[in-house]
Design a protein around this nucleic acid. Structure first.
Lengths: 348, 348
DNA sequence: ACGTGCTTTGCAACCGGTTACAAAAAATTC
DNA sequence: GAATTTTTTGTAACCGGTTGCAAAGCACGT
């Protein structure tokens, strides 16, 4: 074990008595070296703790093996709510991003890529060329919940490789990964039916969003499957916020005294609904069962602990990684939907 | 606006009628160009949307302007608890990391650095040279809650530039940023005193940890300041977990019926304590007031919403960024402590 | 006019890899 | 054994910036 510094392939080459080219080939599994030389060179590199310079390789190869996750600056208790044009995005909050990030990092590492986290500004698209043209990253991962159409369009016209979580518009030239909202709506409703509920209300997100529609379709399908008619007056849409849910719940209770279950399209809505039910003297789950959506950290500690539909974040991350890398390698765009799983706790 | 592709400084040079060197100097604010040429070159670069290749620059400069945040793979509901050697780390959970990350990214961006998120394995230190020797990053940011001594030592002996959150051992050759646990303990206790409480219990994390000690010192100091004696039998230590807190609370209630307040060293512990208090027929905050620590997302939605001591994560991130960059530029290591602020909600 | 010093510019050699192409060595064919 | 093919190796030109050093341009004093 020589103690001299072995920093470049030229050093390794000298020690092995071969040329730089041969070392490069040996370390890259090229077929242009004999098996014997390859092993010898590798052994030497190993012994001397040689780590190949990633920057030089990137320059030469014209690819960085780095992908960027685009995020917004996070201000958990900041003035965001008061800001003009504020749009509540608590449908996929905090921990979900972390879960996705973990799976993403793992998936990328497994394929030799690294994860760069960048913060983007909602009104500006300069970051695209700033990161792509400067050769800092090979592609991007975005989350629909925290990016505007503008960004997606800019990326598309720019021809940037990217994947989006939470969209399933197969009509676009980019890959997507999203939760299976239809299945989610179905299993949530099925669980309520299985536990004997029949007057099941649906409190959705914005009616215009495909996500809400898909969950509704799942809900309706489960009801029909159980030969329970879909009562349109039990179906409401609102916003993914507690205020909105409180309101809807109040209206529903006023109109229908016989409600025995609620399927809310986010955990935050579910919790607000529970509070409103309590205020109206109903016990949860005894009188009315409640199912939420997302399984945020909060759900497990709600009172009572929330039964909810969970989307495995780490899996989402892995699939995002896979999609993007496939797109980088082959140019093929794909659309994947990940399973929704019911987490049964105490609210239903 | 010429439409030809301007990808390299050579292109810019050709258009401007100068040499590559001059373009490089112009774009880098070198004093070795005339002001006039500098502006002309910059204007041309701007017009053509030129973005300098970061990889080539890194290779030349021997620095990447990227720093890595070392994380563990995150398995929120995974089998972690059951794993051998599992150590619960819910004292700085989920959202805190996100908050820190946000501040970190912002701080780094402001100084021209990017944030790489890597996942490390607790039993292996190869990642250090894998990222440093390969010239992928210039330094590291670690969180004490999710890294072993082994890693810190390996980094230190390796001479790697790095900062740690959550440690304040000024005896080491690396920079640290941590919360002001002493002040945190003090203001929490002071608030309880201010609201008329006198029999205040302390439920700490592991007694061996400096963090717990500091919070205890703050607690004791506030009591003495109010001329309330420190009753050692009201002070307990445990683990940062709900089970541990449940147990301590039960013991304390059994021994001291006159308890009127609890200062718990994490929100999770505080919530567990509240449940135990309720089980014993005490009302919160009427009979017993409870203050937690951390202000995780959960705290605001607990029942009742938790009064707690908050550490501003984004600020922590910014300071981590500043410390590390200063260390990279000047070699100076520093130790910063960030303020703790009391968030008054309903539990106390 | 000429030398001196200062500012501005260009040349060319790096940084540490990859890879097209040519050359050498080994294996195959006749 | 020579000719041909195939495998293995080396040479050198990239990738796109930075920077030491020399040279050019210019103002100044004498």
């Amino acid at each position: 074990m020589t103690t001299e510094r072995v920093k470049t392939i030229a050093d390794v080459a000298r020690i092995a008595g071969v040329s730089k080219a041969t070392v490069s080939r040996a370390l890259n599994d090229s077929t242009l070296v004999s098996a014997e030389t390859r092993e010898r060179v590798r052994a030497i590199a190993q012994q001397h703790g040689f780590e190949m310079n990633a920057t030089a390789r990137s320059l030469s190869r014209r690819e960085t093996n780095v992908i960027a996750l685009a995020t917004y600056p996070y201000e958990p208790f900041g003035p965001t709510e008061a800001a003009p044009g504020f749009v509540p995005t608590d449908k996929l909050p905090d921990t979900f991003v972390l879960e996705v990030m973990s799976g993403l990092a793992a998936g990328l590492h497994a394929r030799g890529y690294d994860l760069l986290v960048i913060q983007i500004d909602s009104k500006e698209t300069g970051w695209i060329s700033r990161y792509l043209d400067s050769g800092r990253v090979d592609g991007f991962v975005l989350m629909a919940a925290s990016c505007t159409i503008k960004h997606l369009e800019a990326l598309e016209t720019r021809g940037a490789p990217f994947v989006v979580w939470g969209l399933d518009s197969t009509s676009h030239a980019y890959s997507t990964v999203s939760g299976d909202s239809y299945a989610g709506g179905r299993i949530a409703t099925q669980h309520l039916l299985d536990t004997g509920r029949r007057r099941i209300t649906f409190i959705g997100g914005p009616e215009t969003e495909q996500e809400a529609q898909d969950r509704y379709r799942g809900y309706a399908s489960a009801l029909r499957g159980a030969h329970v008619g879909v009562d349109a007056s039990l179906v409401t849409y609102g916003w993914y916020s507690s205020e909105s849910a409180t309101l809807r719940m109040r209206e529903l209770l006023a109109a229908h005294g016989d409600i025995d279950a609620v399927f809310a399209c986010s955990d935050v809505m579910a919790i607000a609904a529970i509070e409103e039910l309590r205020a109206a003297g109903r016990r949860v789950p005894d009188d009315v069962a409640v199912v939420g959506y997302d399984d945020v950290a909060l759900a497990a500690h709600a009172n009572p602990p929330l039964t909810t539909v969970r989307q495995p974040g780490p899996l989402a991350g892995r699939l995002l990684a896979d999609s993007l890398i496939q797109q980088l390698r082959t140019g093929a765009v794909g659309h994947v939907s990940i399973p929704a799983e019911l987490v049964v706790r105490e609210s239903a």
